[in-house]
Design a protein around this nucleic acid. Structure first.
Length: 226
DNA sequence: TCATGATCATAT
DNA sequence: ATATGATCATGA
């Protein structure tokens, strides 16, 4: 476990590697990877995700693809509390705000990323020192029919508003499972979007996120269903 | 208390 | 600026 793993060649291999991480402390994983561990995540919000990507051999970089495209799998960490309840929403991908002709749910980036997810629950409790937090039990999830139609309905509602030039009227309260929120480095980041009159306007970039109520049901379905 | 809107780091 | 990885922190 101290060596950098090679890229997994099968889903079983990937899952086995992920499963081995259960119970391991971030401090030990960081030490083995020879990575410095921050005191907290305030300035390193993606640190845990990057650390686990490293261990599982995910492709680094900023490509808009699944983490393991040859396996058709997306890797997502999920910070949870002592009861296994998600503490944060889950970022999925950036929301397209222009050039929407031809975009549909079937070929959407959201559906592609969520078709098969290797979830890695992690201890997200801020009251526990980052070094002492541990990885949870990995599980692979694919949306069932009800979940997929819920995601599709939300996605289509959001995209309709965007197409109608109502992006600035979208709030995180909209959507049952999938919400849209700002996704940017800071308030100065701007991108093109469709305005109320159909012309191009500048707005804060937006992203699709899974609401905690949705990921909580996934957790329940996997760990509390008998 | 908790979710929304804001923000942080890094690579390209 | 946009993509990845997300969590922070304050208002409700």
């Amino acid at each position: 476990m101290s060596l950098k793993p090679q890229r997994p060649h099968s889903i079983d291999e990937l899952f086995a590697r992920a499963s081995e991480l259960a119970g391991q402390r971030f401090a030990d994983l960081a030490a083995a990877a020879q990575l410095p561990i921050p005191n907290d995540l305030r300035r390193d919000k993606g640190w845990v995700g990057m650390l686990l990507e490293h261990y599982l051999g995910a492709t680094a970089g900023s490509k808009p693809t699944q983490d393991f495209p040859e396996l058709g799998i997306e890797l997502k960490t999920l910070p949870v509390d002592a009861n296994g309840k998600p503490l944060e929403t889950t970022f999925v991908c950036v929301a397209p705000l222009t050039d929407l002709a031809g975009v549909n749910w079937q070929t959407s980036n959201v559906r592609n990323k969520l078709q098969c997810v290797l979830w890695l629950p992690i201890d997200g409790r801020r009251e526990i020192p980052l070094a002492d937090r541990v990885v949870g039990s990995a599980f692979i999830w694919q949306p069932n029919a009800a979940q997929e139609s819920m995601l599709q309905r939300d996605w289509e509602e959001h995209m309709d508003r965007i197409a109608l030039g109502e992006v600035e009227h979208i709030t995180a309260r909209q959507g049952v499972a999938l919400q849209i929120r700002p996704k940017a480095a800071d308030g100065s980041a701007l991108t093109d979007a469709i305005g109320p009159d159909g012309s191009i306007i500048q707005v804060r970039p937006r992203g699709f996120y899974l609401k905690t109520s949705f990921t909580e049901q996934i957790i329940r379905q996997v760990f509390h269903a008998v």
